[in-house]
Amino acid sequence: MFDKWKNRIIGSEILGINERNMDYVYQLNPKKYFTLADDKVKCKELLHANNIACAKTYGVVRRIGDISRMWSNLNHYKKIAIKPANGSGGGGILILKKNAEGYWVSGGEIWSEQKIFTHMARIIMGMYSFGSSDHVLVEQCIEPHPFFAEIYAAGVPDFRIILIKDEPVMSMLRVPTDKSGGKANLHQGGLGIGIDMEKGTLLDAFDGHTYYTHHPDNGNSIAGKEIPMWNTLVALSIATSKCFPLDYLGIDIVIDAELGPLIMEINVRPGLGIQLANKSGLKLLLKAKLN
């Protein structure tokens, strides 16, 4: 009786926030395990332990006193990414590359060791995680697969796959635009591109207002484009999902030019904009897997 009533009100195939939280996030993801996905350091430990392809961890700094000792182990790399373990919205992420003279450079500026240490100290003191102390994750820097440059040259585009009980149900590719300033999030002006999961090809792109078959900034074609290593990518997402005691996940994957698909991030409350990118609702797909 309840269900009949429910369907009358809810009707559509679109999954709303209330229903996502109530029927999927709360039901399938025990709260005590959220941290396995939310904390980047813990997440990577789990991934490494299960031999899941992801960016190599060069080091974790937990105390300010450890910074300089850790740094001596890092100095021989050419490119590194420094991240807060519990940052939000990309805050505090620093990408460093060595230039021809051997200096560390980020955003066209030379970064002295002193400056890099200060940045790490800030992360540990909780600058990017709202006051609570945090850890620094130093990892391998991703070099995007040439496929992405065929769509848009700058930034690092990534795939988002929604899985329920280790089964992929919907996915999209997120690509930056001139407006989004290198970021690929939908609400920051990036493009969400739907994916035909059977064929492994791209569908139309959506920027929050309009659908496009070509990238709006450069006219590169999008719709119908074949995704390289799609099957590996899907298999990687399933393998990843199986290592986590969480049954409703949004897994972010990038394709590295050399290493192929790598796990970037795991989300326990994946956003619902993916439905817009795919022009279809999640509700029926999820329900079918639930029963």
């Binding site: 559509s12 679109i14 709303g16 209330n18 109530m22 659908y211």
Partner: peptide, 18 residues
């Protein structure tokens, strides 16, 4: 607390797919 219906604002957000 047990209401799982779409929020009114979501009808607007998802209007391109609805």
């Amino acid at each position: 607390g047990r209401w799982i219906g779409m929020r009114i604002s979501e009808y607007r957000r998802f209007s391109p797919t609805l």
